[in-house]
Amino acid sequence: MDPDLDLRKIRYFVAVAELLHFGRAAERLHIAQPVLSRQIRALEKDLGAELLTRDSHGVRLTAAGTQLLEDSRHLLATAEAARRRVRGASRGPRRLVVGFRAGVVVTRALRAFSADHPDVGVEARRVEWDDQADLILDGTVDIAYVRPPVPERGLTLVPLFTETRVAMLPADHPLAGKPELASADLAGERRLRYSDAGPDDPQIRTIEEKFERVAAGYGITLVPRSVAEQYSRPDITYVPVTDAEPDQVFLAWAANRDSPLVAAFAQAAQAPS
């Protein structure tokens, strides 16, 4: 009979695989390096596969190790989500945490869900582009309204709606007074995006950080129309971009989660307004 996977060994492996150094991994884990080495060898024996190679060039992942690292992150996130839910259940009344991206209004769905489930505490929490999937998978939020890019692995994604996008420009920009724009009008502009900041640019996480950089003249960006409707500043102007690709909003929850509360909220969110 094959042994069950030991999550502690998996955590040890992930530390080594991410750092590619047994000494630094042992320091991160607060254990002795010989203990770490024995645990990795034991894991390899459990799995019947070599996960790491060590030679004069350092530590490297084998093909099996690369696959395990990919699977381990999802496995550990699932375990952490279960731990969070059990702890939450032990503290008292049932609770549902709903994540949402900037611009998305969740009030109608929250009210509809609460009307049918008055015994459930509901909390709305804003998520960002770089943590939206992680917060679902680790159980911090139970279900969330997300925008691309979002990884499909481990998640159930249900398309909710699309919305047009507008250009966010400094108020004194030459194009700021136009009634509408085409993408070609913005061809020479420096674009600010969340996920592809240059090596000399700080990573942009929030819509507020976009505001500051646009207002300061570092570049322009496209945002969903709902963001323009909810956020106004005297030093920022929004102009519709007629041929911009629409923004898609999805409802997302952990694919391995079978929760009546999550299902009920998903139904409320998809109900016609």
Rank of each mutant, 00 (worst) to 15 (best):
D2Y: 11
R8Y: 06
I10N: 04
F13P: 00
V16Y: 00
E18G: 01
L29C: 09
L36Q: 00
L43D: 01
G48M: 11
L69E: 07
R73G: 11
R73E: 08
G103P: 02
R108W: 12
A109R: 14
H117L: 06
E123P: 05
A124G: 07
R125N: 06
E128G: 10
D130T: 11
D130W: 11
D131F: 02
D131E: 12
Q132H: 07
A133R: 08
I136M: 04
I136S: 08
V141L: 08
D142Q: 02
D142R: 04
V146S: 06
P148W: 07
P151T: 13
R153S: 11
G154E: 04
L157I: 09
V158M: 10
E163W: 09
V166C: 03
M168L: 08
L169V: 09
H173T: 06
P179I: 00
P202A: 11
I204T: 14
E209F: 08
V214N: 10
V214K: 10
A216V: 09
Y218I: 10
G219D: 09
I220M: 13
P224N: 11
V227D: 00
Q230M: 15
P234N: 15
P240H: 07
V241H: 06
A244N: 10
P246W: 12
F250G: 07
A252V: 13
A255C: 13
R257A: 14
D258R: 12
Q270R: 15
